[in-house]
Amino acid sequence: MPMMSAEETAALDRVRRRVAALAFFAVIVHGVLGLVGAAHVVAGQGRQSDAVGLLVMSGLTATIMYVGIRLILGARLFSPLWMLAAAAPTVVGFVWIA
């Protein structure tokens, strides 16, 4: 089995990080969207304070998703565009139940 060059090893590591970040995103985004959906159902039952609690949990989960993905990718944590993208489902949820 031939040895890989440093360039090939770096490229393979980059692919591994991207695949891991996508897998992490796919799992966590279901939780974020599920909490937003549950908040909508709970708000429909007249339990606004419970719906707000679920949306806050959605925001915390989205924050964990954002930080986790940035760490997996080895990217700097501060990125306003990606912060807005991570917060979008929760913001839409707040508008939706208002």
Rank of each mutant, 00 (worst) to 15 (best):
A11L: 08
A38E: 09
L12K: 04
A38T: 09
A39G: 08
A10D: 08
V36H: 06
T9D: 07
A6D: 15
L22P: 14
A11S: 07
V32W: 11
R16I: 08
L12I: 03
F24Y: 15
V29A: 01
G31W: 08
A11W: 01
A10N: 01
F25S: 08
A11E: 00
R17H: 02
E7S: 06
R16D: 13
D13R: 11
V27K: 11
R16H: 04
R16N: 11
D13V: 09
V15E: 12
R18F: 05
L35P: 04
A6L: 12
S5I: 04
A10Q: 00
E8I: 00
F24I: 02
I28H: 15
L22F: 06
A6T: 09
L22G: 10
V29Y: 00
T9C: 10
H40S: 13
H30D: 13
H30F: 12
V27E: 10
D13K: 07
G31K: 02
G34R: 06
L22Y: 03
R17P: 00
L33Y: 07
V19H: 06
D13I: 05
R17Q: 03
R16E: 14
I28W: 14
R17T: 05
G31Q: 04
V36Y: 03
L22N: 15
A26R: 06
H40T: 10
T9H: 10
A21C: 04
G37L: 09
F25R: 12
G37E: 02
F24W: 12
L35Q: 03
A6K: 15
R14E: 07
L33A: 05
A23K: 14
D13G: 07
L35C: 04
S5Y: 11
D13M: 14
A26I: 06
R16Q: 11
V19Y: 05
L35F: 12
A21R: 02
V15M: 13
D13A: 14
R16F: 00
F24L: 10
V32Y: 13
A23T: 14
L22E: 15
A11H: 01
M4W: 09
